[in-house]
Computed example of a mutant assay.
Amino acid sequence: MEEQYKISDAQVLKVVAHPLRVRLLGLLRSDGAATASELGRKVGESSGSTSYHLRELFKYGFIEEDPDRRDGRERRWRARHRYTSWDAVELSGTEEGREAVKVVHLRQAEMVGRLMEAFDPGDWADDWVEVSGMSDHVLSLPPAAVRELKDRVEELVGELSTRYAADPAARQVTVWFGAMPRNREDAMPRNREEGRDDR
């Protein structure tokens, strides 16, 4: 499997931003090769629907047939890349590109919500429950600091993944990183004069 699929075409980004396609591609990346029927059962869709969307992902180079694992009459599909990337600045140069970037960001947020909803603390040991979840921080940072944070997180993720690859307690874990600037009108008031009540 190749490392990444770098998208430079807004139309291609919109193809993968379809809600069902992004789920199918994610499952092929995380769970391995599968048929349209197998994926349909996982996402609650008919095999006809998943087949159509898999063909679209194939058409644009996101997936391929798995030559090592044939399943009778039905094709088995596998992801071609570990992840998808794009240059948001480059794509945002057109209205179509800005729309595609926004849609794919919303799909990412939906995926986080879906995974959080599926997590049931009762299914996991206390040590997993303790470390699961999310935290958020509202900071005042320039773009250079956000870039540094992103780079350091990526570096740490790679280091930990390598260090613990053979640990018997290791499980597949979804790790998110996100940062978005807030519009001034969305910011909370900072003091009582601006409307905050400190009582």
Rank of each mutant, 00 (worst) to 15 (best):
S8I: 11
V12Q: 08
V15E: 04
V16L: 06
P19I: 08
R21L: 02
R23A: 08
R23W: 01
L28H: 01
S30L: 14
T35P: 10
S37N: 07
V43M: 00
E45C: 13
S46G: 14
Y52V: 10
H53W: 09
K59D: 12
K59L: 07
G61M: 03
F62N: 01
E64C: 09
R69P: 00
G72Q: 08
R73F: 10
R73G: 05
W77H: 03
R78M: 08
Y83H: 11
S85T: 15
L91T: 00
S92A: 11
E110R: 14
A118V: 03
W124L: 10
A125F: 08
A125M: 11
W128A: 08
E130A: 13
D136W: 08
H137N: 05
H137Q: 11
L139R: 09
P142I: 09
P143Q: 09
V146M: 03
E148A: 14
E148T: 15
E148K: 13
K150M: 04
G158A: 09
E159G: 05
R163W: 04
A166F: 06
D167M: 05
W176T: 15
G178V: 05
G178Y: 12
M180K: 15
R184S: 11
M188E: 12
G195S: 07
G195K: 02
R196C: 09
D198Q: 07
R199L: 15
